[in-house]
Amino acid sequence: MGYFDRVWRTHGMGILKREFAAVVSRDRARAARQLNGEDATFPVLFILMPELDRFGFYKELSPRNISALRITTKKTTGDEKLERYLRYLEETETEQSQRDTLRWIIETGIDWDGPSAGRDEYDTVIDYAVALLVGDHGDNSQLAKIAELIFRRNRSGLFIHDLVWGFFRSVDADALSVVAKYIVSTNRDDVELACQMLGLDVPETMEAQEKTFTRYTDYLSENKSYLYLTGEGFQASSAPRHLTHDPEAKYLRREISPRDRAPLAPLSEIELKALTRFREAKDDVRELLIRHSGKVKTRGDDAWHNWINSDIARQVLAAQEDEGENI
């Protein structure tokens, strides 16, 4: 833990600001070393923003801190002049360095809830950093921590929607697994939110919670390759299905891109033909074909290719016979 972090955690924000001012007055280089250190945290930088301005302490900052400060300024004071100046100072910023900065903000800043006066501003910065890291940089390394924050804020009745939106921009089945763990929480608020985020009915008892959890994790492992982002969120619906599976992909056992729902590899003529017939079939027949497709796949690729290459009527017949045998 860095020097200023120790001061903050031990003595609070007021003393931290005074100590920073004292160190800057005595030795600016030392203040810069402490603030730019690997072990420094984002909350300290956030708390010291007014002092940095007061002492004109910008040129001494590391590229990471300058970048973090610019992101923060954009979402807090909105001071365009300062933002332009910081952008000028960070002209060497690369995509990788911005990503590292965002990770640093989240890794070191997500466990703090912000100052009592100004919590909203702090939350706004964290939400923005999440949306940038997950949505724009496609970095899903912090999903578990982000989920923790979503549920923590929800327990306090705080605003979570931008954070939930940023979280699901990960378009990753792991995001669903992370949320699913909260179905078996002992806290009712957690259970209700987890179910809302996953589009599930809220179970009433712990036994029902466990059943829901098992069913959902089974669903995820069965459909992981066929999930895609729907774009739904709390802005659109009370029970948004952020990600759901594509039945056509599941029928063809073809992995799709979760972002745009397109197959990862082009479909063959035979698959395209099968798909056309599949689309014309009634709902219950489609369900039957999807179930059977999965079963045949477990019998090996040859068996599955033989089945999918057959006429749709034969596919249905085979599926019905198979289900009949099992009844």
Binding site: Y128, G135, D136, W165, G166, R169, G231, G233, Q235, A236
Partner: peptide, 16 residues
């Protein structure tokens, strides 16, 4: 609901 699936991160309020 009008959905804007590729909304800019800077303006989440325009997600739809």
């Amino acid at each position: 609901y009008f959905m804007n699936p590729d909304v800019n991160t800077e303006t989440p309020e325009w997600q739809g």
